Simulated assay, not measured.
Amino acid sequence: MLKIKEIPQNERPYEKCYRLGPEVLTDTELLAIILRTGTKGISAYELAGEILKMDDNKTSLLSLKHITKEQLLATKGIGMVKAVQIQCISELAKRISLVGFNEGTKFNKACLVSDYYMEKMRHLEQEHLYVMYLDTKCKLIKERLLTTGTVNQSLISPREIFIEALRCCAVNIIAVHNHPSGDCTPSRNDIECTRQIKKAGDLVGITLLDHIIIGDNKYSSLMELKLI
């Protein structure tokens, strides 16, 4: 990897961004600008490149989602301040993705639910199952993380789901979980779990509107697939 001083001056990250805009920068250049400085013998540009290949040794922004604070602090040139900066980048991206949602948002379409959870869930390394509790107009009353790990029928308690629904006066619910593989195709277990929840909801008068499976920038809706 080139050192900053070996890059022509008008092609260095700051100068390039100023002339052409941030959209033309590579991932490494963008991160180098955020880091601002390197350390003795390592430029910010080189340090950015090392960070982006920490997770799988391939230069990728996905590394920022998976590397831990401990991994960062063990890297030459990264102290507490830079470690915090790097972790905040991912959190900022996640929060930006939610800016378009507010208390008045109606979650009556699978694509809206997918947009709401995509950045939050698509890079998770374990399965997480959330339940959205909605009012009569499909506005979100609250959400709850129900399980972490394999979403298995034996681990899901419909009783727990619907006690919470009754407590917050929800009329509808939507289940959402991720597939860490990135493939959002519903498994047999996903379908069985969904039907179990729907059956319990029908008994207490609370409707399971959908079960959304989050993959890598894609989703599946069991309602749209006519599986429930």
Score class of each variant (00 low, 15 high):
Thr194Lys: 03
Glu192His: 08
Arg36Phe: 11
Glu11Thr: 06
Cys168Glu: 09
Gln85Ala: 15
Thr136Ile: 15
Glu164Met: 11
His179Asp: 07
Cys138His: 10
Asp202Leu: 11
Ile33Glu: 08
Leu73Asp: 10
Gln126Val: 14
Glu192Asn: 08
Lys94His: 09
His177Phe: 02
Ser63Trp: 01
Leu203Glu: 13
His128Val: 14
Ile197Tyr: 01
His123Thr: 15
Asn189Thr: 13
Leu31Tyr: 00
Thr148Lys: 15
Arg122Thr: 06
Ile7Asp: 12
Ala175His: 05
Cys184Trp: 03
Pro186Met: 04
Ile34Tyr: 09
Asp27Trp: 04
Lys76Phe: 09
Asp210Trp: 01
Glu160His: 09
Lys120Arg: 15
Cys17Trp: 03
Leu134Val: 12
Lys65Ala: 13
Leu140Asp: 10
Asp202Trp: 05
Ile213Val: 04
His123Gln: 15
Val113Gly: 00
Ile42Phe: 07
Glu50Leu: 15
Ala83Cys: 05
Val24Cys: 07
Glu103Lys: 15
Thr28Val: 14
Thr26Met: 08
Ser43Ile: 11
Pro22Thr: 06
Gly205Arg: 05
His66Asn: 08
Asn172Phe: 06
Ile4His: 05
His123Pro: 07
Glu119Pro: 01
Ile212Val: 10
Asn102Ser: 15
Thr194Met: 08
Gln153Leu: 15
Leu61Ser: 12
Cys184Met: 10
Glu143Ser: 15
Ile214His: 00
Arg95Ser: 13
Asp190Lys: 12
Tyr219Ile: 07
Ile228Gly: 08
Asp27Glu: 08
Asp56Thr: 13
Val151Lys: 05
Cys17Arg: 12
Ile86Arg: 02
Leu35Gln: 04
Gly149Glu: 08
Ser60Asp: 10
Lys3Pro: 03
Leu98Glu: 11
Glu70Ala: 00
His177Gly: 00
Ser97Asn: 09
Lys120Trp: 06
Thr28Trp: 01
Leu52Asn: 05
Ala44Met: 09
Gly205Ile: 05
Leu2His: 07
Ala48Ser: 10
Thr37Ile: 13
Lys5Met: 09
Glu127Thr: 01
Thr150His: 15
Leu166Gln: 12
Leu73Cys: 07
Val131Ser: 05
Tyr45Gln: 13
Tyr14Glu: 12
Asn152Leu: 14
Ile7Leu: 04
Lys226Val: 12
Lys139Glu: 12
Lys226Met: 14
Thr68Asp: 04
Asp190Thr: 06
Leu166Ser: 11
Lys106Ile: 12
Ser90Gly: 10
Cys17Ala: 15
Asn10Gly: 03
Ser114Arg: 00
